[in-house]
Nucleic acid binder design. Structure first.
Lengths: 204, 204
DNA sequence: AATATGTTTAAACACATGTTTAACACGCTT
DNA sequence: AAGCGTGTTAAACATGTGTTTAAACATATT
């Protein structure tokens, strides 16, 4: 976007934005070159080929968000607090990388042989850790005995759809600016909806 | 899949399956022709062009699921019951058209000018109706006073991610067959998690 | 000043892809 | 039997696209 002096960075930022909005196949290397104001050959010069450029963007995102998630969930405090912090951190990260999140989520919907290897790795770790945390909360009596797998999937869905559904949601009358509007409420709201469903009746 | 005698139907079914797993740009008309065992030109003969074939599949899906959703939510009974029936019907439909659901969800993540018109229309109607139902429940004192928009987005996310995330989720160890395994539990589980979060404390 | 190394450019290359064309086969009507 | 519309095919067409090439340019080092 900004006219940086470094062409490699310009390519990277432009590619990230274009891939996110138009998808891998929806963007040509010439599109990237034009918007980044570089020659087409520069992309291959710096990144080898289009695939590697794309995969690099995806993997760096996955590694970053995975680090955030695992870091929070690895703490040794009340599983309820851990989950709350997880939601808050995860949502914060998604807000900061909303475009890239859409890019990655889309790519995961494909049976792309390039991607599914590390995609499934990162997501698998996250899923397992989430399940364990939920399970821990159940064992401790904090949560009702729900199915941890389904519950983890539900929680991820609540968060991911908020961002992945942006292209649709922003087109709904009255929701054009929902991302900015709910920026400070979404994590809290999701946490509330989620935890109250998990709380056993005796505690209320 | 099945070797039907009708080439037009074969094209339609093959295209639906291929688009769902590989995306619009990830599938060539020659791919479709080969798998459907027809000549390439038949696709253009029957459907005009690739775009129209794709849009036809998407729109017929959207219209079907929209009809189901609006039908259930238009009833005049307890909003809690209406929501429960909505979840059950919506999930049932998604199970019956899981592949197509993935196809449509992916297409909606794009800023495709062809699609966003009727996509946003169908989804907008659904979103508004959901909000209204939730609002009604709040007014009646059945639900805690949550933000209807965010809550509707959360609910849709819980359901949609279960299906849209299939390419990822099925690759997670221990979840390879989660779709079949949870076929009879998912709607109930989601409903439980959702409604208990909405229930006011006084009622428990 | 000369050479080397890294960067950038315009053009070409190779090929995949959506679509069209022209010919052919078959069934139905007159 | 002739004509016509529908279905079907193989081949060609037109073009978009990822990548490579060879040369030019810049900058630093010796």
């Amino acid at each position: 976007m900004a006219n940086m002096t470094n062409p490699k960075l310009r390519i990277l930022e432009t590619a990230e934005e274009l891939f996110a909005t138009k998808g891998f196949d929806g963007v040509t290397v010439r599109d990237i070159a034009e918007q980044a104001q570089v020659n087409v050959a520069m992309i291959n010069y710096y990144f080898g080929n289009k695939d590697d450029l794309y995969l690099g963007i995806v993997e760096s995102y996955l590694e970053a968000i995975s680090t955030v998630a695992e870091g929070v969930l690895a703490q040794e405090n009340d599983p309820r607090l851990r989950l709350k912090l997880f939601i808050q951190s995860y949502v914060d990260f998604l807000f900061s990388k909303a475009k890239t999140a859409q890019l990655v989520l889309r790519s995961e919907f494909q049976d792309d042989a390039h991607i599914d290897r590390f995609v499934s790795e990162y997501f698998a770790k996250n899923q397992i850790t989430l399940e364990n945390t939920i399970n821990e909360g159940i064992q401790a009596g904090y949560f009702t005995p729900v199915d941890p797998k389904l519950t983890a999937v539900n929680l991820m869905g609540m968060m991911l759809w908020f961002f992945a559904g942006a292209p649709i949601l922003t087109r709904i009358p009255g929701m054009e600016d929902y991302m900015e509007r709910y920026k400070d409420q979404f994590a809290q709201h999701t946490w509330n909806l989620f935890i109250k469903g998990l709380s056993p009746r005796e505690r209320l």
